[in-house]
Simulated scan of single mutants.
Amino acid sequence: MSAVPLLKVSDVSKFYGSRIGCRNVSFELYPGEVLAIVGESGSGKTTLLSCLSTRLMPTSGIVEYHMRDGQYRDLARMSEAERRFLMRTDWGFVHQNPADGLRMTVSAGANVGERLMAVGDRHYGNIRAAAGDWLRRVEIEEDRIDDQPRAFSGGMRQRLQIARNLVTSPRLVFMDEPTGGLDVSVQARLLDLVRGLVHDLGLAAVIVTHDLAVARLLSHRMMVMKDGAVIEQGLTDRVLDDPREPYTQLLVSSILQV
C-alpha cells in the first residue's frame, strides 16, 4: 500500500439549513484500501459519500485528491468539466439502484463501451472486445452483449454497473449500498465478485452500507456514523470484534441477535 494518501478529507461538514448532514469528518484513504462507512438510516453516511464524490459540495472543509500527475487538488476548486472527467475516468460510482448508474435503453456492451469512449478509445472492435471481456469478468454471458439492461435481473444489472465503472481502470470507486435490495444468495455472489475485483485491481473504495456483514467482508477500515458525526473508526475486525462506543456495541449486538 502506498505511503501517500489517495484522498485527504479535512473537517468536512454539510448542513441543510439548520439540519446536520455530516459534521467535522476527517480521514485519509490510501491506494488499495477499502473503507466502509456504516450507520443507521439518517446517520449521515450517504451525505458524506455525496460530498466525497462531488455530488454535493460541502458547507465547510476540504476534500483533496491525489491526481495522476502527483499533485493534490481541492475538489471544490475544480471546474465542473474537470470533476466530470474525473468521474468518467479515475473514479467509479456504484449506485444502490443500478438503473441510476446504467443507460437502460442501450445495450450492455454500449454501457461498458461508453466509458472507454470517454477516455478516447474510438476503435469499435477494441471497445466491443473490452466490453465482452468485462462482461465475462462480472459473470454475464458474452452472448448477452447486445441485450439491454432492462432484460436483466437485478443482480445482473448490478454486475453490469460494476463492469461499466471498472472498465477504465479507475483508482477510486464509491459504492452506495451495493447489495441493497438484492436476494441474500445474489448478495453473496456479488460480494464475492466485488472482493475479488477490488483485490485483483488494487482499487481504493469507499463503501456506504448499513450491513455490517458487507463491511466485514469487503473493508480494511470502518467508520461508524451517528447523527452526522463519526463516533468510532479503526480496522474493521477491531471495530466489529471489540467495539468501544456504546452505539457501536448496540449496532453489533443487534446484528448478532437477528
Results as ranks from 00 to 15, higher is better:
residue 54 T to S: 08
residue 18 S to A: 14
residue 54 T to R: 03
residue 40 E to H: 13
residue 45 K to Q: 04
residue 47 T to S: 02
residue 61 G to A: 09
residue 47 T to V: 08
residue 50 S to G: 07
residue 21 G to M: 00
residue 26 S to T: 11
residue 37 I to A: 01
residue 48 L to E: 02
residue 19 R to G: 02
residue 27 F to W: 01
residue 44 G to N: 01
residue 10 S to N: 11
residue 60 S to V: 15
residue 29 L to Y: 10
residue 16 Y to V: 01
residue 60 S to C: 13
residue 57 M to E: 12
residue 48 L to K: 01
residue 41 S to Q: 12
residue 18 S to M: 09
residue 16 Y to K: 00
residue 14 K to D: 06
residue 47 T to L: 01
residue 41 S to C: 07
residue 22 C to N: 12
residue 48 L to H: 00
residue 12 V to A: 05
residue 33 E to P: 07
residue 56 L to W: 03
residue 57 M to W: 01
residue 26 S to Y: 06
residue 50 S to E: 14
residue 30 Y to H: 09
residue 24 N to D: 15
residue 60 S to Y: 11
residue 53 S to L: 11
residue 37 I to P: 02
residue 32 G to Y: 13
residue 59 T to H: 01
residue 41 S to E: 10
residue 20 I to Y: 03
residue 13 S to T: 13
residue 26 S to V: 03
residue 16 Y to I: 00
residue 15 F to S: 07
residue 11 D to P: 04
residue 39 G to R: 12
residue 51 C to H: 12
residue 56 L to D: 04
residue 51 C to M: 15
residue 40 E to T: 12
residue 23 R to Q: 09
residue 63 V to G: 06
residue 28 E to N: 15
residue 65 Y to W: 12
residue 28 E to A: 15
residue 46 T to A: 09
residue 39 G to K: 08
residue 14 K to M: 08
residue 28 E to D: 15
residue 46 T to F: 11
residue 10 S to L: 10
residue 62 I to W: 09
residue 26 S to A: 01
residue 15 F to E: 03
residue 50 S to K: 12
residue 46 T to P: 05
residue 36 A to P: 07
residue 63 V to T: 09
residue 52 L to C: 10
residue 35 L to T: 10
residue 30 Y to N: 08
residue 23 R to K: 14
residue 35 L to C: 11
residue 65 Y to G: 07
residue 58 P to G: 05
residue 37 I to L: 03
residue 55 R to T: 04
residue 17 G to F: 00
residue 14 K to N: 09
residue 32 G to V: 12
residue 25 V to W: 04
residue 50 S to Q: 13
residue 23 R to W: 05
residue 14 K to R: 11
residue 23 R to P: 05
residue 56 L to P: 01
residue 51 C to A: 13
residue 34 V to E: 08
residue 55 R to P: 06
residue 23 R to T: 09
residue 17 G to W: 00
residue 33 E to S: 08
residue 64 E to L: 15
residue 13 S to R: 02
residue 61 G to M: 12
residue 63 V to C: 10
residue 38 V to E: 06
residue 62 I to N: 06
residue 58 P to D: 05
residue 26 S to L: 05
residue 60 S to T: 15
residue 29 L to Q: 09
residue 56 L to R: 03
residue 27 F to M: 06
residue 18 S to R: 03
residue 31 P to Q: 14
residue 59 T to P: 00
residue 31 P to E: 15
residue 57 M to I: 11
residue 31 P to F: 13
residue 23 R to D: 06
residue 26 S to F: 04
